[in-house]
């Protein structure tokens, strides 16, 4: 997959292929990120490559719960960057379902979203094809702090602040 940022660096040579629709063909050897329905169909069939799943905003992350332990990667689709549902999905996966694998943002993913996406638990970002991932990387550092409890910093600023003052 091209234009990928992972572990705060642009990655070349990612083996995952995003399978967008159910009628898209893929080979048994490929590492594929599948739509949920296709994944559920394929997960118990022979496959030499690795299987992952991607969720659309209207899908419920709770449906993934039984499969999370076996998933090396979950992708969340942002059909438009103004659609914020994926941020809640990411937090739910990380905080409620304790998902530890790679969480990849796909779709309309641009520099100005990266800082928030990282805070809610994404650790990989496929930057939209017409934009430069190296340039987008800077977006990860837009903010050095945040007020809220987040996946990256589970202790909200007010608690850290008050403990400083009380101490």
């Amino acid at each position: 997959m091209q234009n990928l940022i992972k572990n705060r660096a642009v990655v070349n040579g990612d083996s995952w292929r995003l399978v967008r629709s159910a009628d898209e063909e893929f080979s048994i050897k490929e590492d594929v990120i599948l739509p949920l329905a296709v994944y559920l169909e394929c997960k118990d069939k022979p496959h030499e490559g690795r299987l992952a799943v991607w969720l659309a905003p209207e899908q419920d992350v709770a449906e993934l719960q039984p499969h999370l332990a076996g998933l090396p990667l979950v992708a969340i689709d942002f059909p438009a960057f103004s659609d914020g549902r994926g941020y809640s999905h990411a937090r739910l996966l990380r905080e409620r379902h304790a998902y530890q694998g790679e969480l990849r943002a796909i779709g309309d993913v641009l520099r100005d979203q990266l800082s928030y996406m990282a805070q809610v638990g994404f650790d990989a970002f496929v930057i939209r094809a017409d934009r430069d991932a190296a340039n987008a990387l800077a977006g990860l550092d837009d903010f050095s702090e945040q007020y809220q409890a987040t996946v990256l910093q589970p202790v909200p600023l007010l608690r850290r602040r008050v403990s400083l003052i009380v101490a």
Binding site: F81, D83, G84, Y116, M117, Q146, Y147, Q148, T150, P156
Partner: peptide, 11 residues
């Protein structure tokens, strides 16, 4: 403070 730059609820 909670609402300012809230990463989950910006969109």
């Amino acid at each position: 403070q909670w609402s300012t730059l809230h990463p989950e609820f910006a969109y």
